[in-house]
Design a protein around this nucleic acid. Structure first.
Lengths: 331, 331
DNA sequence: ACGCGGCGGAACAAAAAATTGACTGTGACG
DNA sequence: CGTCACAGTCAATTTTTTGTTCCGCCGCGT
């Protein structure tokens, strides 16, 4: 278990995050292939590892915890990875991987799609389903591991995208790719609340770029799930409106209040309950945000649609165990 | 009205945004200064324009509408801008400007803060309040114009930050600076809904970086920060009074000397230390000013409240690395 | 060593804000 | 259609902030 060079640290006292670093450099040649397979299986997905050139494999990787995401910086010799149809998966691996190629060549195949990446390009694929990755020579890349629910919440049609290539040459793809690269370069210097904010932006930018690349896939309205996503997006926009009630949401979405109730009921939550939960989450996030350190608690509450400080205080304590003031001070 | 080269287009049918581009290249030398003043006043803020080197001014700018923001890409010869206290303002100019320096030198002063930028660095300032910008030679920059309400919604303490420098060398500042630069490079390719999403991210990142840079300013609560600003303004007025001591400031502000100390202590500086720094900066600015080339150094020092020339010389050397005379000769 | 002016700590009063408790309507869910 | 839980209100109570005064410390010039 401790063949590995350094240990993960979620966060030090100062709030800085420290990476888990791994390297083949200390591993005897004969064992590298097996060692690498174990590492990749443990950290990303169950795959077979082979060397396309029959040369000795080498790889260095640094994995930064990034709120719910993980950002990995990887330098590697040529390598081939393949995931077979029936590999079992750990729940913790139920994620999409967004890969940003820094140098070298990278070919990714999944579900009959083939993505050939140039340095700077990005690709998204589902780590839990069969895929093949082929890199004929030395290369380096970043990998952003995005838990499935997180991604699904922002992009309804995500299940339909396999090995989706996003050009890093221009437009939103370039911005997103650049952003992830900046994060990779500066990952040592982030405090934990910063990582968390940046992770949010990263997911958002990647999905935005994906949507731009493949508008067709995502507009196909599938069913209730798509509607739900739409409604949630609407709610998100209106959160700060104190006069937000089921009727208003119904009007703005063109659905009947009853149907809305049913939609959310299927998720085990009522519509208004969802709204309140989101509002509380926004407040909590503002309270934790140093940018808002000077703002009065009641102001934050009011800003997110609460009409009454005392009510807010109670609701908050109910959800987070401690009152808003306590929450702000000792996270 | 149509002295200008191309027209703004909010959005074409395809959703692409097109920049408004302006250039001095077609303007006769004699009219450039006036033309540039008009352009800057129309697009950004009412300022005076001068050439620090008495050379002919030249400037190219492209302004991209970016949802509620505007992103400008600017290349310019050396230039000095100054906004006076009582300039009237258009409502449309009620914005903060985030400037990202691409190349050259840039010195920005506002409310007693001085920001000296390296390429890659960022700074935020309030376009509606007095400020001075000094660029001794050719430079290029991006400007992100952020409407005040937009910024205020995300950052409680925004009113307090004047000429806030954000290092682009590392951490969140680097990510934010990079992001804005990416946006600038790809601004031609964005569809309007993309611009709008990116604008959101840009504001968020800039504020996040700002918060990281100056936690002290933001950890102050609103009212305390407001009194601090008030005190600083008072100090600014009295700088040249040699009999300015904590007691005098206390009397004039109606606060106790002790409280004043605590106020400045929160910013990591003591009251008199601040006064000194400001006096030195005023002296430095006078020393660099060709109009005062004839004034004796001691005269300048006395004028800004120093009582003793030798004391001044020592303090100056401590802050600026060289003595006042050397400073005046070669910057 | 001595006095002076500025600096920052502790104790404290007043004011403002946050939290709690008791009580009331209304919508959610069976 | 009844029950129940929970959003909202008002007043009482507790905690935090805002400033104050008093005091000792330190660096500086003599």
């Amino acid at each position: 278990m401790d063949t590995f060079s350094s240990r993960p640290e979620s966060a030090t006292a100062k709030g800085k995050t420290r990476p888990l670093t791994l390297s083949t450099s200390e591993i005897p040649y004969a064992e590298r292939s097996e060692w690498l397979r174990e590492v990749i299986c443990r950290e990303y997905a169950n795959v077979d590892v082979t060397s396309p050139t029959r040369q000795v494999l080498s790889q260095d990787l640094a994995i930064y915890p990034f709120d719910n995401l993980r950002l990995s910086v990887i330098r590697s010799s040529g390598i081939s990875l393949r995931r077979q149809p029936f590999e079992p998966s750990l729940a913790s691996h139920d994620a999409y991987l967004a890969v940003v190629l820094l140098s070298g060549d990278y070919v990714l195949e999944q579900d009959g799609n083939e993505a050939v990446l140039q340095p700077g390009d990005m690709a998204i694929y589902d780590a839990t389903r069969p895929h093949r990755i082929h890199c004929p020579r030395d290369f380096s890349k970043l990998i952003l591991s995005i838990p499935r629910p997180l991604l699904r919440a922002r992009m309804a049609g995500i299940e339909r995208c396999a090995a989706l290539r996003i050009s890093g040459a221009e437009g939103v793809g370039a911005v997103a790719s650049n952003f992830v690269r900046s994060c990779g370069q500066n990952a040592d210097a982030f405090a934990s609340h910063e990582s968390s904010a940046l992770a949010d932006h990263a997911v958002d930018l990647v999905t935005l770029a994906a949507a731009t690349t493949r508008p067709a896939v995502f507009s196909l309205s599938d069913s209730r799930a798509a509607t739900l996503v739409r409604v949630k997006a609407l709610v998100e926009k209106c959160l700060s409106d104190p006069a937000l009630d089921p009727a208003a949401i119904a009007r703005r979405t063109g659905l009947s209040p009853r149907y809305l109730g049913a939609l959310f009921g299927a998720e085990g939550m009522s519509l208004m309950r969802y709204v309140w939960r989101r509002r509380l989450e926004r407040c909590a996030s503002d309270l934790a945000d140093p940018r808002r350190a000077g703002a009065r608690i009641a102001e934050i509450a009011f800003h997110w649609g609460f009409g009454d400080a005392s009510h807010f205080s109670r609701a908050f304590k109910q959800r987070y165990g401690r009152g808003p003031a306590a929450f702000r001070r000792g996270l």
